[in-house]
Design a protein around this nucleic acid. Sequence first.
RNA 1: GGACAGGUGGCCGAGCGGCUAAUGGCAGCAGACUGUAAAUCUGCCGCCCCUUGUGGGCUACGGAGGUUCGAAUCCUCCCCUGUCCA
Length: 400
Amino acid sequence: MSQPAEASGAGSVDSSSTPSTPFQFEVIDRDNATKARLGRMRTAHGVVETPVFMPVGTAGTVKAVSQEQLEGLDARIVLGNTYHLYLRPGEDVIGSMGGLHRFMAWDRAILTDSGGYQVYSMAGLRKLTEEAVEFQSHLDGSRHRFTPERAVEIQWLLGSDISMVLDECTGYPAGEVMARQSMERTLRWARRSRDAFDRLRAKEHGAAPGTLFGIVQGGTHADLRAECAQALVETGFDGYAVGGVSVGEARPLSLAMVEAAEAHLPPDRPRYVMGVGFPEELPRYVALGVDMMDCVLPTRNGRNGYLFTSCGRLRIRQARFAADSRPVDESCGCFVCQRYSRAYLRHLFISGEMLGRTLNTYHNLFFYLDTMRRIRETIAAGGFASFLSEFVHRVQGEVP
RNA sequence: GGACAGGUGGCCGAGCGGCUAAUGGCAGCAGACUGUAAAUCUGCCGCCCCUUGUGGGCUACGGAGGUUCGAAUCCUCCCCUGUCCA
């Protein structure tokens, strides 16, 4: 079977010594005005069309929605979190249940974050050394140690389709010296992760369940981002992420960092910007050649009553919606907008009814996934650039 | 009819001589949320005025009097509520 010219997979990384994995990525079309591209990512758990938005399911659940609903949304890949699943229920439990897919009854793809973000978000509860990061559990205060090797092993046991290297998510602001130190440690950890992953894969004689992505750090310093990307590419990964973005810096800076990294990443490998973004950010990153994104905003904000619509944000709690019989978004095709009024959703939210959180989350995820669908369509059909400018403008206001 | 207990801002409920326009909680109003320590967090929440400030004025702790330099807080009477006894 011949592969498309730009197809890549673990088999092509160094096919002489490393057994192949089911993971494969091909670029199937490109936008002619921007760097946006259309791709297809094959995993052991299905094909993922890119650019893709991945709902975040930290603890083995995309909060407030069921796996059936995720399927209904046509989500093809979701995130899980190594740190959280390690603490509870534990990778041994999940392993004994046949892996995370079977455990959570989700047979589509799963990408697991390594715990690198928790290095950042739980800064007060962890200690960093060259060798490892030591966490104090937010659940019971117990102490735990994550080495890059351990993070890879846990993700392996979870059966992740795409594992992420353990990185140090650099906060903002970070001066050049600090950002470099942090980035270089992330690089050393990336190499250790790569080695650990390859050892595990060799042990399985090619039956590797997934693949491993590297993560570009470097704070808000374009030269560091570029340097990090180059070094990661030398190490060799099936995909490359840009992390440490949207941690407090202004948006143009985030975009510039992605651009700086992208310039040094191989065109035939997926690029993943971690943890973004607001709706208007999605096509902007796509225009920079980004294939994958994830963010808690649609889910967390949904639970907090903040709805994303095609004509701006809508905070369902506001008094002006108390007797508003319109749907959240008149041009939205989701079942929530087909069936329920703003007034009812407001009532549910204000009453603390859990159905409200679920419906809000479902709508927001639909909006995000539908936006990505449109992005893919416009890249394929042409007109992505005009979609981009129109969408970004339309989506940033307040809903009428 | 009698004995206790009690009446505090939209509601519940602290306070029991000055630090009290009055703790809290709820409700209400508004804001935040970016690889999820999040069904979380933050602010406002008597009325009026302005040169928007550790600014000024007014009204407020059932009602009416009183004690006191000063009362939501002490005293008297009245009204009301709850529980118990007849």
